[in-house]
């Protein structure tokens, strides 16, 4: 048990971003008035954007972990579009955008270039949304994993192609309404497929570090970025970042909806090393998936005009399976982070 976790129980607002009662050295990066603000004000993300928040959380933590020696490759997507509308940029990191499909490959190239130049101190992050990661950029990503290139790839998963108008991606959950999976017909919304769980696929490559995180658990996210930056080789971090516009929730409910995704078991938060699960964030206040689904108009057809009991139960079964599979209710095991 670290010092931080020992006093934690006694704190007012333990789960808050900052904590004035903690020693400065164990406080979160985001609570630091001098944090990097890697993604600065003036960006054009929608109100309450989870991705903008997740990107700042992750990159600020990485910047601290590597003392600012960081270069970032970015796939096409919301994150790229809203952060760099010509001639403005919101980035306060060395940042490069090339194409939709090739962020992982650009990251590989950057790492190779740094190696050739003898810049061992400079580390590389490649990042993108779920579209650029699990669909369009998937081949490059798998290649980067297979070659064990020294890159941390971060996927900000908002479960659809948002900036082009909310089209389905292979990360879109079952039953969700998007422009391409309308709430119409016998089985409205997205299909109940087999799923495409990229963190598990990444683990199957046997790479040194794979983790999932949520924008609703800052301390866990920061811990995982720090852990990833302490390791060399191919690493993968999958961050759940709600999109109020695409999901149809209130702009102020971004973190609440992310929290319920984790607390219902629908988005399991865990970490794995060399293909083996080594830690999980256990559920603190379990909720039925219904609580999560009801907040979002993309699932409204499950509740109106008539409750779709069968398909709600199927979604609950997905959550229950996650809980069993990752041991999310196992209180004996505390989260890996302090």
């Amino acid at each position: 048990m670290t010092g931080a976790s020992r006093v934690k129980f006694y704190q007012t607002g333990t789960f808050t971003v900052g904590n004035r009662l903690l020693d400065v050295s164990v406080r979160s990066v985001q609570s630091d008035a001098d944090r990097n603000n890697s993604l600065n004000s003036g960006h054009r993300a929608c109100q309450g954007c989870g991705e903008a928040l997740g990107a700042r959380y992750a990159l600020d933590a990485a910047m601290r972990a590597v003392n600012g020696r960081l270069v970032v490759a970015n796939a096409t997507g919301c994150l790229e579009v809203f952060s760099t509308p010509y001639p403005e940029s919101s980035w306060r990191v060395a940042w490069l955008h090339s194409l939709f499909a090739n962020a992982a490959a650009v990251g590989t190239g950057m790492a190779a270039a740094m190696k050739v130049k003898g810049r061992k101190d400079v580390r590389v992050i490649a990042q993108g949304g779920d579209g650029g990661t699990v669909d369009i950029g998937f081949a490059c990503l798998s290649g980067m994993f297979e070659r064990d290139d020294d890159v941390l790839y971060i996927c900000y998963d908002n479960e659809a192609y948002m900036n082009t108008g909310i089209q389905r991606s292979s990360a879109t959950p079952a039953a969700a309404r998007t422009m391409t999976t309308p709430a119409a017909g016998q089985e409205p919304g997205n299909v109940f497929g087999q799923g495409k769980n990229v963190p598990l696929i990444a683990m199957a490559h046997g790479i040194p570090y794979v983790a999932t995180a949520s924008v609703a658990d800052l301390r866990d996210l920061e811990y995982k970025v720090g852990r990833a930056m302490a390791i060399h080789g191919a690493r993968y971090l999958h961050v759940h970042v709600p999109c109020p516009l695409g999901w149809g929730c209130d702009t102020g409910d971004t973190l609440k909806v992310a929290r319920l995704a984790a607390e219902s078991g629908l988005f399991p938060i865990f970490e794995a090393e060399a293909g083996e699960v080594t830690g999980r964030r256990t559920i603190r206040r379990r909720v039925p998936v219904e609580d999560y689904l009801k907040m979002q108009s993309r699932f409204a057809h499950l509740f109106s005009p008539k409750r779709d009991e069968r398909r709600i139960a199927m979604i609950q079964a997905i959550a229950d399976r996650n809980i069993r599979r990752f041991g999310l209710l196992d209180k004996s095991e505390q989260g890996a982070h302090p």
Binding site: V17, R20, S41, G50
Partner: peptide, 18 residues
Amino acid sequence: SCGNCFECDNCFGVCPDN
């Protein structure tokens, strides 16, 4: 600390727009 700021940094942290 009902109704009175106790400087937990949450607002500072969760703002997507700094």
